[in-house]
Write a protein that binds this DNA or RNA. Sequence first.
DNA 1: AGAATTTGCCAAAACGTTTTAGTGGGCTAT
DNA 2: ATAGCCCACTAAAACGTTTTGGCAAATTCT
Lengths: 364, 364
Amino acid sequence: MNKDMRPPGATPAGTGRNVTIKDLAAELGLSITTISRALNGYSDVGEKTRKRVAEAARQLGYRPNRNAQRLVTRRTHNVAWVQADNDRKFVDPHFVEVMAGVLRGARAGNYDVVLTSDTPEHELAVYDRYVNDNSVDGFIIDLPREADPRISYLLDAGRPFVVHGREARSGAYGWVDIDNYGNFYNLTRLMLANGHRHIAFVNGDEHFTYALYRRRGAADAMRDAGLAAANLKLLNSLHPMGEAGFQLTSLALADPKVTAILYSSTIMAVEGHAALLQHAGDRKLAVASMDDELHYLDLGPFTGQFTFIRSSLRDAGAALMAELIRQCEHGGPGNGHLVPSHFHLAPGLDAAVLAEPLPANRRG
Amino acid sequence: MNKDMRPPGATPAGTGRNVTIKDLAAELGLSITTISRALNGYSDVGEKTRKRVAEAARQLGYRPNRNAQRLVTRRTHNVAWVQADNDRKFVDPHFVEVMAGVLRGARAGNYDVVLTSDTPEHELAVYDRYVNDNSVDGFIIDLPREADPRISYLLDAGRPFVVHGREARSGAYGWVDIDNYGNFYNLTRLMLANGHRHIAFVNGDEHFTYALYRRRGAADAMRDAGLAAANLKLLNSLHPMGEAGFQLTSLALADPKVTAILYSSTIMAVEGHAALLQHAGDRKLAVASMDDELHYLDLGPFTGQFTFIRSSLRDAGAALMAELIRQCEHGGPGNGHLVPSHFHLAPGLDAAVLAEPLPANRRG
DNA sequence: AGAATTTGCCAAAACGTTTTAGTGGGCTAT
DNA sequence: ATAGCCCACTAAAACGTTTTGGCAAATTCT
């Protein structure tokens, strides 16, 4: 044996030995089979034996080696959540809210979340790695685009996954989403019913389906009211936060006919507030936004002035994880879950139109 | 054997068999030992054999089963990052920035990050679980408090970990931090040197050391200038974002003597802008903040008006991960890393004082 | 040429679980 | 009494790697 037998970069750094199932077996004079079955709740171990095992396990501080379990069961109790490593995705503070829900859901189901970023050149490489090296049981997909390649890949691989949002194939997988189309259809016809004819719409990046569907909802409501497409003044921002809120609001106000502004991001609505103060003069503007509850953003000062549609991103996160765990444990087709949205109307608004259902051909 | 032998909630759902090292061995007529050693770069396999093995592995799409590797090597290439499951922590949009850096660092070192939330009642329970079930090699600790119990626990357990921030024992572990004390000392004496005598300080939650050290830096600068403690008007917020920015700024302005405002969060400074517009009238106020670069927050409109100290949270995240991986792979004591901060002065400010070093007894 | 070393490979043990396929003893039904 | 059944337990195989401790052939040294 020659000297440099070590592989290039490996240097072991193990830690002290842990209590194993074998120690318990020796301690109690039972077989390791019985210990294992006792701990796993099988019905073929006697009641007092089970008690003895549980007690000894507690006493000796036994913790099953997760990796041994994973090796033999081929289930990891881990799910992967891959973050796009580009500024567009990383910038989004909404992520924290979804995460809070996902982590609660994971803890509730005894799962852990493995977080990674993809390699910018090969979006699917990291999914491929996880699918093939047995390190996760399922996947969370975020911010889907139309014909999302990640979804294609996972459908093809036949692995459990759940999508926060929808795209064309949403019948074929599990998802959690809000009614982007319907909410913006409603928001728009609410404004129309209250006399507004020229509406500015500050939307997100329509590369993502959530923004695309929102725009379609707004546009369809305009069309159904017999108005020209130009009456909806579209303003898109790739960022949900930052100076864009100020700038786009100023831009919206530059058109003197505009009497209402819809925002696809509450943060932008709040940021636009400064522009309203500066430029609006004595114009009376209706402001509405649809977004999620951002716990770090207190809307106290604006609740009396703006119209909001809100829904809980945390609940969505928890639902995502619940659906994914269901798939991992019980298999079967993925289910879709619609998260409810709540209207908070600015005072003085006639809301009668919201009671009417969406036209039958207008369902997202 | 009776019918209900399954443990209560277990339902296997394995996937198709993967290519193993054994398949490669059979394919090439070599032993599994040789395959393993070839793939791991040991020097005792012939050059052409190594090539053959690599080629076959590529051809057959071999991916080592991570769990088998983890079982035998006792190293997981996973690190844990535990999120506090309370509103205080989850609300913080800064998290996303650190995460971006951490994930890049992890990918660079071939590690994955396991994200969990703790159980509100037992902060340490999840650490204890990870320490004992072999599912991670190390830990990332966030937002340390003074005498942080998580740090006590991990020091005691002797596991690799790295802290984003410092507390009293920072000589004993690896950390990455900015110079909170020094930066606020400097920011304060900058204001003092420019004639301000009554300064408002909108700080974060001093439960966390970052905010505590910032306050100490500001307070010490006042004291060193011979001013009364009351000349520093302290305003604390538990949230780094939201209406607090508006409210606390209004509160600061309520004191007519105040001519400068320091913010411990740039988001608050930006949010405070609206209050400045409304309440300041023709008072000439100096505004300064220290924070990290938030990629989702474009400061374009404010760069000419405010003074900023900024540093990169992404770099900090990457450094955290690099230091943690170093500990995991090579062992040894943890190192501290100070992330540089950059001054962006508002025009017209005399910055001479910043060239002077901090007093010797004033080093954080 | 013979001894010593190097080179290239391998069998078997180990990691810590779960799962398979039992076993033997006591009870019940006939 | 005997066949059948249930109860409580177990030995051994399996999961897919890495690591230990070799060994025979080829090469180098004297």
